[in-house]
Design a protein around this nucleic acid. Structure first.
Lengths: 161, 161
DNA sequence: CTTGACATTAAAGTTAACTTTAAAGTCAAA
DNA sequence: TTTGACTTTAAAGTTAACTTTAATGTCAAG
């Protein structure tokens, strides 16, 4: 199958598929006599696997180290380890998220509970000090910040030219 | 206070503080006669607020729109709305995380439950098809991916020169 | 009066995961 | 035979949130 069809079947952009190849993530590709890329049906599986892996928090770099070029050659040990590590990461992240949410909820409550007889500035300071924002909260830095919560942007609809 | 002290008190890098100023996020800064930046004590509050906001998933861009230059001029309405929106975002994200984790756990179980009498390739295919990786899982794209789960990298320890 | 720590600037570099652009070749169909 | 859809490439652009670099200025202390 050519890149267009693969793109359609995986709902990825052709440029994305070429990119994955360029970084050594997708190696199952041959060339037709005319130079066009030619993919086996399993390429769909692998690309879906990559997408799934990304959704689970694996970087393309991690995935490259994890996914063998040959589907028949999975290193079960390393793979399972990585999966378990990632589950741990997610659990830790869930904790951090819960904390952030709790803090936001508390902040909202704090702001809403404004005594009504004090002005904005005073209330602002009250809220800030109550929330412990005056002191550094986490002395030890936690790896990875919540980058993913930003607004959705330029998202292209594949195949809707 | 000069930038060095502010950096120490907030545990941010001076370059970071200058950067925040450059994008219009931190406006409470004057200049000494010699050209050095001079910050009021409230700058510590604001920077901590920014850091906290980031941890809760706000982008610097969102924070800029949300935080007024003057602490006494909080727009409670817009602020509360934004906070509630963010709580929603986090909740949605928690759901996605939980799904990802469940999928990973199921995947681990699936791999471990390998019948032992079949080879790697066959098992791989069995796992892949069982996990539904052959079909596109989410037809509609969800905004925001889990970028934050990547490995921790170059993290500088402020003040440990 | 020199040293060292700190400050300034503009501009370029970093990372991840892609997309966009530009210039060109391929190919089935009208 | 000329569209038009699809393909190729290398290289540059994008975004966020910073850092690094380089060249220079300030200032308290020895």
């Amino acid at each position: 199958m050519k890149i267009g069809e693969l793109a359609e079947r995986t709902r990825l952009a052709p440029s994305q598929i070429r990119f994955y190849e360029s970084i050594g993530l997708l190696k199952m590709v041959r060339r037709q006599p005319n130079g066009y890329r030619s993919y086996p049906p399993e390429a769909v599986l692998v690309l879906n696997l990559i997408v799934t892996g990304q959704k689970a928090g694996f970087s393309l770099d991690e995935l490259r180290r994890l996914l063998p070029s040959d589907l028949a050659q999975w290193e079960h040990g390393r793979l399972l380890d990585a999966l378990r590590d990632k589950v741990q990461d997610i659990a830790a992240f869930e904790t951090r998220l819960a904390q952030s949410k709790a803090q936001l909820v508390a902040l909202i409550a704090e702001i809403e509970a404004r005594p009504d007889d004090i002005d904005c500035a005073t209330n602002a300071k009250r809220v800030l000090s109550r929330m412990g924002l005056c002191e550094t909260q986490s002395p030890t830095l936690v790896a990875g910040d919540i980058k993913a919560l930003g607004k959705a942007k330029r998202r292209r609809v594949a195949g809707a030219g």
